[in-house]
């Protein structure tokens, strides 16, 4: 160990080494605690669905390999709410029976304020599965690129 320090002309100071190790440990811990689910980004390539397509009862979630993957859903806003201190957009298709519930990422709050019920939008999020409705988490609203 001392040889290595001699080779790189570093003075052997245990306190300094301990401090560096602690720093690495801290970086490791904070990187683990940022989020429990993967972050959805604008750039990721995803499969696209209309609300009616993904809500079709013949759509087999278990066999689709789409659970836990990022999907983009196109639909009309039925509701925007802030229940349980979460921002949620609910999308509808042709029918009101089965909806798509999109739990939004915290950084989408400003975008949500510009939206209204009845707007046609795209939402990208992690597909968790289906109860009465389809559930997407960590959702974002992809923004049009400047050159489009």
């Amino acid at each position: 160990m001392q040889l290595i320090f001699k080779k790189f002309k570093i003075r052997y100071k245990p306190a300094k080494i301990l401090a560096i190790l602690f720093l690495f440990l801290l970086i490791g811990i904070t990187s683990c605690t940022e989020n429990s689910d993967k972050i959805v980004s604008e750039s990721s390539d995803v499969k696209q669905f209309a609300v009616d397509q993904i809500n079709d009862e013949s759509f087999n979630f278990e066999n689709s390999n789409l659970i836990e993957s990022v999907v983009l859903v196109k639909g009309e806003i039925k509701d925007i709410n802030y229940l349980n201190e979460r921002s949620t957009i609910i999308l509808k298709g042709r029918s009101n029976d089965r909806l798509v519930i999109c739990d939004m990422q915290d950084n989408q709050k400003q975008i949500l304020q510009k939206l209204s019920i009845g707007d046609a939008i795209d939402v990208k999020g992690i597909l968790k599965g289906s109860l009465n409705d389809i559930i997407l988490l960590n959702c974002i609203i992809p923004q049009p690129k400047n050159n489009e």
Partner: peptide, 8 residues
């Protein structure tokens, strides 16, 4: 799988 935790 829709439970959200503090740590991954």
């Amino acid at each position: 799988n829709a439970f959200v935790f503090e740590k991954a």
